[in-house]
Design a protein around this nucleic acid. Sequence first.
DNA 1: ATGGTTGCTTGGCAA
Length: 271
Amino acid sequence: MKAATLKITTWNINSVRLRMPLVAQFLKSKAPDVLCLQETKCRDSEFPMKDFHALGYNHVAINGQKGYHGVAVVSKRPLRLSQKRDFCDKGDARHISVEVEADGGPITLHNFYVPAGGDEPDVTINPKFLHKLDFLDEMREWIVSQGVSRGRVMLLGDLNIAPLEHDVWSHKALLKVVSHTPIEVEKLTNVFEAGAWIDAMRHFVPRDEKLYTWWSYRAADWEASNRGRRLDHILVSEALGGALQSLDVLREARNWERPSDHVPVTVELST
DNA sequence: ATGGTTGCTTGGCAA
């Protein structure tokens, strides 16, 4: 009898075509039921569909665009595409949602790639930062008005914000660095509260322990300096809070050959 | 004080 669990991974892959060998290595060794990707960086017609099929991931939902952004969900279990919402009406591919079959009933997944926001944390001179804040406001409004977190729901992906003091290597040094500024943290906190989401990663790792999912390419030695940030998140609705079984942040993936700057984050749920 | 790297594409932006 099949174990009644569901393993779900989120991973900003920074070009799915370039890194398909790493994805294959990951799927073979960890075998999650569902993998949610961000920054696929290709049109839907260019997505390496056959490679996923060959690995046993026969169910695929994609929202891609040429060169930038792009999100995808690949699964060993049947999926039903439910939505591709164009937040901020810019035509960006930054969201896709699906329903995944599970023993206790379907689970809705919302896979996000939130705008990075550029370098300057000042909306008067940096339109990319304004876009990021507007995107977060729209997420909050959408969660409230649509009741997004009702039922068995997960919201995950690269949210490009490290909200807690120990989600960054130095809280003080990063207060004026986009990804950890007070205004971004406030708006992401509003998103969390709007759905009464449970922070699945912090369910397993205390808030006073360092926890990162991303290390810059620009460090001479990422591992020695260890200047990481927790930019990737998995949130679950209250109905799934009691189902959380385990967490795996695959730090070693940052040392793979030609790695993404983000590592895969996996949670296991009892279903 | 201000680089540093990577990907998509071939000059320069986005991250």
